[in-house]
Nucleic acid binder design. Structure first.
Length: 114
DNA sequence: CCATTGACTTAAG
DNA sequence: CCTTAAGCCAATG
């Protein structure tokens, strides 16, 4: 039997997509959820991220809500770590919100299409 | 099994 | 701009 076939957990898919996010880019929970075929499970993506940051080296700071707002910053080691990491990659953050979010927005449905 | 919660999203006031 | 509320699905107690 194929393990890769059986291990298709929602979390695992989220981890994979999150790792594929290029530096200086960011995406939304909904976009990832939709790419995984669950546009209504945006919350599960956030849940996966929570598990991800303790399990693997997932750039969770590149995943924000639809407004580009750093809603998950409070779950990082420090409430400012997320902004620091984003700015370090060239992403400007103003008042917990990504500047020019649409410009740095990375949609897996488009980038990973095909 | 039922109740609560949450790193979401949209809508309404 | 801020707060509520409802819809959504999975994890947790």
């Amino acid at each position: 039997m194929k393990l890769s076939e059986k291990n298709k957990d929602f979390f695992q898919d989220v981890f994979d997509v999150a790792r594929l996010i290029p530096e200086g880019k960011a995406t939304s929970y909904g976009a990832i959820a939709k790419y995984l075929g669950a546009p209504r499970s945006s919350r599960m993506v956030g849940w996966a991220m929570n598990a991800a940051h303790t399990h693997t080296d997932i750039p969770a700071h590149r995943v924000v809500n639809r407004n580009g707002l750093l809603t998950g910053k409070m779950h990082f080691a420090t409430p400012t770590l997320m902004e620091e990491l984003l700015e370090k990659e060239g992403i400007k953050v103003k008042k917990d919100k990504i500047v020019d979010y649409k410009k740095i927005y990375w949609d897996p449905n488009i980038e990973l299409a095909l």
